[in-house]
Simulated scan of single mutants.
Amino acid sequence: MKKRPGQGRSRATVEAVLEATAQLLAETGYGALTTNHIAERAGVSIGSVYQYFPGKEAVVAQVVERVVDDVLADFSTGLLAGPTDNRRIAAVVYDAIDRRAALVRALTYEIPFLRDLPAIANLRGRLLLLASQIYMRTLAEKPFTHPHVASFILTAMVRSAVLDSILNPLPGMTREQAIDTLAEIIARIAGPG
Rank of each mutant, 00 (worst) to 15 (best):
G29A: 09
Y30K: 04
Y30W: 14
Y30I: 03
A32M: 09
A32E: 15
L33D: 03
T34L: 01
T35F: 08
T35D: 04
I38E: 00
A39S: 10
A39R: 03
A39K: 07
E40V: 14
E40G: 02
R41C: 05
A42K: 00
A42G: 03
G43F: 02
V44H: 01
V44E: 01
V44Y: 01
S45C: 06
S45P: 05
I46R: 12
I46E: 05
G47P: 02
S48R: 09
S48G: 11
S48L: 04
Y52I: 02
Y52N: 00
F53P: 00
F53G: 00
F53K: 01
P54K: 05
G55V: 07
G55I: 05
K56T: 04
K56Q: 09
K56L: 06
A58Q: 10
A58P: 04
A58D: 15
A58I: 03
V59D: 00
V59R: 00
V60C: 11
V60R: 05
V60A: 08
A61S: 11
A61P: 01
A61E: 05
V63W: 00
V64G: 02
E65V: 00
E65C: 08
V68R: 07
V68A: 07
V68D: 08
D69A: 15
D69Q: 11
A73F: 06
A73V: 05
A73E: 11
D74P: 05
F75D: 03
S76H: 12
S76V: 06
T77K: 15
T77C: 12
G78E: 04
L79P: 03
L79G: 05
L80I: 14
A81Y: 06
A81W: 08
A81V: 13
G82W: 10
G82V: 15
T84H: 07
T84E: 08
D85L: 08
D85A: 09
R87Q: 10
R87C: 06
I89D: 00
I89H: 00
A90H: 04
A90E: 04
A91C: 12
A91M: 14
A91N: 06
V92S: 10
V93N: 03
Y94A: 01
A96N: 01
I97L: 02
I97Q: 00
D98R: 06
R100G: 04
A101M: 05
A101R: 12
A101E: 13
A102K: 13
A102Y: 01
V104H: 05
V104Y: 03
R105S: 14
R105A: 12
L107E: 06
Y109K: 11
E110W: 05
F113Y: 15
R115Q: 12
D116M: 13
L117R: 02
L117C: 07
L117M: 13
P118Q: 10
P118K: 08
A119I: 09
I120A: 08
N122T: 15
N122A: 15
N122I: 10
L123C: 10
L123S: 07
R124Q: 14
G125F: 06
G125I: 10
R126E: 11
R126M: 11
L127C: 14
L127V: 13
L127M: 14
L127N: 09
L128D: 10
L128I: 09
L130E: 13
Q133T: 14
I134E: 03
I134V: 15
I134M: 13
M136P: 06
M136F: 09
R137K: 14
R137S: 11
R137G: 10
T138Q: 11
T138M: 07
L139F: 12
